[in-house]
Amino acid sequence: MATAHLLTRARAGDGDAFRELTEPYHRELQVHCYRMLGSFQDAEDALQDTLLSAWRGLAGFQERASLRTWLYRIATNQCLKALRSASRRPAREWNIPGVEPPEPTRLGEVAWLEPYPDALLEGAIDVPPGPEARYEQTESISLAFVTALQALPPRQLAVLILRDVLAFHAGEVATMLDSTVEAVNSALKRARAGLQRRWPPAADREPPPASGSPAEGAIVAKFVNAYESADLDALVALLTDDVFMSMPPIPLEYQGRDVVAAFCAGILGSGRKFDLVPTRANGQPAFGAYSGASTGIRHGTGLFVLTLTGDRICAMTRFDAGVLPWFGLPRSLPSR
C-alpha cells in the first residue's frame, strides 16, 4: 500500500515520492552499471541518466514487472547506449619521472578500468541473487571479473550480467532487451564461452582469505612493511609465480614474478619513500600510496588494489591518484 501511494504521488509530479521509491535501488543499480561499463565515473553518469529517464517515463510504468526490474531495464539500456556511443578514456603514457619501466608482457585493452569503493557496496552486493546465479556477489565485483566482462560484445555483456550475476529469468531479460528468450539464451551461451577465455575458473588456485580475517591482515601487513621499507626481497616473496600487474589507464601489463620484481625494483630503487593508507576496493585490500620527503608533505601517487590467493598476492593493480577522493582519502598527507 505504501509503494502504491508513493507511486501515485510520484506520477503526479512529487519528486520526494519518486526519490523514496527509487533510493533503495541506487547502490545496486550503480554496481550494475559499473559491471557493464568498467568505470566508476561512467557508472555514476549512467545511474543519473537512469533516474532521469525513470522520472520522465514513470507514467509508462504499467507494473507488469516489479519497480526494481523496470529500473534494471532502464539502467541496462542506458549502459548499452553508453557503450555504443562513448569514446572511452584513452590510454596514457608512462608518467613516473626518473623511472624507466621494463618491457611489458603485453599492452592492456581496458584502459578505462577504474576501482569501485567498498564503502559503496554495502546494500548493493548483499542482495540475494537467486538460485540461478553462477557467481558469488563478491567475486562478481572483483577487478579481474569486471575486466574480463569488458571484452564481451555489449548485448552479450548485458545478458551475462542479468542472467548469471543477478539471476533474472530469461523471459525477464528478453523483455528488458526487447528481444526473445531464444535470442537471450543464444547470447548467454556465447557470452559464457567468451568470458571463459578471458577469465577461466581458478580451480587450482587457493581461494583468498576472508575479508577482514587475521590471514588477510597478515598478508596485508607484510606487503605494507615491505613496500614502505623498500624491501624488494620481502615484497617478491609475497608474490605468486604467475603474479599479474597492471596500471590503467597506463596500458603496460606484466605477468610473472621476475618481470614484476624488475618493475618493483625500479619503483622502490628510485629513492622515493612511500606511505600506504589502507582502504578497500572491489572487495579487495587496497592502499592509497603517498610519496615525499620524510619531513615534508607527502603527495598521493596512486591507489594499489591487491588480489590474494592463499597467503600470496597473485595480482596488483595500480590506479592514478585521481581516484583517491572516491575512497575518502586525501590528495596529500601532512608533514610528520
Score class of each variant (00 low, 15 high):
Ala91Gly: 12
Ala144Pro: 04
Val146Arg: 01
Arg190Gly: 09
Ile96Pro: 02
Val184Lys: 02
Leu188Val: 11
Leu149His: 01
Lys189Asp: 14
Ala148Ile: 07
Thr105Lys: 04
Ile141Arg: 00
Leu71Ser: 00
Lys81Arg: 15
Pro154Lys: 05
Leu160Ile: 13
Gly171Gln: 11
Pro117Asp: 13
Pro101Tyr: 09
Ala170Lys: 07
Val159Tyr: 00
Ala174Arg: 05
Glu122Thr: 15
Val165Ala: 05
Ser186Asn: 15
Ala133Trp: 05
Asn95Met: 10
Ala86Glu: 02
Leu162Ile: 13
Pro101Cys: 12
Leu152Phe: 06
Leu71Asp: 02
Val181Lys: 11
Asn77Val: 01
Glu114Asp: 13
Ala170Tyr: 10
Leu160Phe: 05
Lys81Met: 07
Ile74Ser: 01
Ile161His: 01
Pro117Arg: 09
Gly171Met: 09
Glu109Trp: 02
Arg106His: 14
Trp112Cys: 01
Gly98Phe: 06
Glu132Ser: 14
Thr69Arg: 03
Ala170Gln: 05
Ser142Asp: 12
Ser186Lys: 14
Arg155Val: 14
Asn77Leu: 07
Ile141Gln: 05
Arg84Asp: 14
Tyr116Lys: 05
Leu188Gln: 13
Gln137Tyr: 04
His169Arg: 15
Arg190Val: 10
Glu109Asn: 05
Pro128His: 11
Phe145Gly: 00
Arg155Leu: 10
Ala111Glu: 08
Pro115Arg: 04
Ser142Pro: 06
Ala86Thr: 04
Ile161Pro: 00
Val173Arg: 01
Ser186Val: 15
Ala75Tyr: 01
Glu132Lys: 13
Pro128Ser: 11
Glu114Met: 10
Ala148Val: 08
Ile125Gly: 01
Thr76Gln: 02
Pro153Phe: 01
Pro97Asp: 13
Leu188Arg: 15
Ile74Phe: 01
Arg73His: 05
Leu113Val: 06
Gly98Asp: 10
Leu162Phe: 06
Arg88Ala: 02
Leu166Tyr: 11
Leu162Pro: 00
Gly130Leu: 14
